[in-house]
Nucleic acid binder design. Structure first.
Lengths: 204, 204
DNA sequence: CGGGCCGCATGACATCTGTCATACGGCACT
DNA sequence: AGTGCCGTATGACAGATGTCATGCGGCCCG
């Protein structure tokens, strides 16, 4: 029989990361050979340890798990990619798939699915929650332009139009125009709702 | 030597919960005797299993880990309480302590601290991050009145003044006054920032 | 009993925000 | 060459939001 599956674990919360490592450690055929707590340490660690599967949390400092996935996919295409996230946002699933992910798991799925997903992706299968896949397809693509997203992101923490304009090197009127179109595209009433909805959909 | 320490684990994300259980399962002297995924199932499970220590995540459906802690503290005062959270918000620490928690851990602390905290609280010790404790003391108490908190919470998802007034059975002017005083107390410029800051401090 | 804070309210005012029309250059697709 | 979208900008306008002064009744504390 073949040797153990070598896994890289990327997750910023140490306690969760080490707990997941403990969980995977219980499996005979899986070995966690590297752990990192930042997105921007993923590639280096993957190179250093010759991993079979990378398990990537999305929310991480440095860069997101999705960005890390895209990078790995480009640099080490033979590494299988499992994206793990707290939030089952359809937009996340879409981005993860575009980044070359082989599996997409949400953290409130049963723990058994984790080891299972690792084995499946190594066998060439793709693993995604059918409900989430349906939601991602139903919702359609992100309607926001890059600029609209930038403005929304910057507006998220309560900045005023003048501050947004300064931060993005735009005129105040332009900022208002972008916010206005974003608000209309998302069918909401103000910037706060727009930020909330865009976040929920994973469009931000 | 004494028998194993019986632990109840409350955490809504199955994968994290089972991973933490796996982690604790590696310790010879600790046994996870019950797992729940909702705050409002904690008391019942604790009663059913005669637990020594309850490990409570804060963010849970049903009721928060802090509310569950307060309930356990009242109903089963001999059970030791460890509160676990993603966010190291000083206000959370304060509330947890007021609810009778014996330990307060953030999830980005090393995993080893978890088992250690379980043993320590059982030995009658209290476990809190000194940095966080300092922050909680430095920041002072929540300056917001109950009404101000209500209005901020309701305003968080982008409701308009008219909607807030209707939802809270207040006049529109009163809503604006509350928001205005909250904005001043938090030393910010608008409601969105006020919500953000209040959240960060755990005052919401 | 008086002072102070809270909850609640109103009115006036200044500023911020959202909408709309309009404009121009660039780029892509037909 | 024409159409359409994007990025950028302006000006005008209506409505939402934030500030301030002021008022009243209730409650607690000294």
């Amino acid at each position: 029989m073949s040797s153990t599956i070598k896994v890289l674990l990327a997750e910023d919360q140490s306690m969760v990361r080490e707990a997941l490592a403990a969980l995977l450690g219980l499996e005979e055929d899986i070995e966690v050979v590297a752990q990192v707590g930042r997105g921007d340490e993923v590639l280096e660690a993957a190179r250093a340890h010759d991993v079979d599967v990378a398990l990537l949390d999305i929310e991480m400092p440095g860069c997101t798990g999705i960005e890390a996935a895209a990078l790995l996919h480009r640099e080490l295409p033979e590494v299988k990619l499992v994206v793990l996230t707290t939030f089952g946002r359809p937009g996340y699933l879409r981005s993860a798939m575009e980044a070359g992910a082989d599996a997409f798991l949400v953290k409130d799925a049963p723990a058994a699915q984790l080891a299972e997903a690792v084995r499946k992706v190594l066998a060439g299968e793709r693993v995604i929650d059918p409900t989430l896949a349906a939601a991602a397809l139903a919702e359609g693509a992100n309607p926001l332009t890059e600029r609209e997203r930038q403005v929304l992101r910057a507006a998220a923490d309560g900045r005023t139009n003048a501050e947004l304009a300064k931060a993005l090197h735009l005129s105040q009127g332009t900022v208002r125009n972008y916010l206005s179109t974003a608000i209309q595209k998302l069918a909401v009433r103000n910037r706060t709702e727009a930020v909330r909805i865009a976040r929920e959909k994973g469009w931000l």
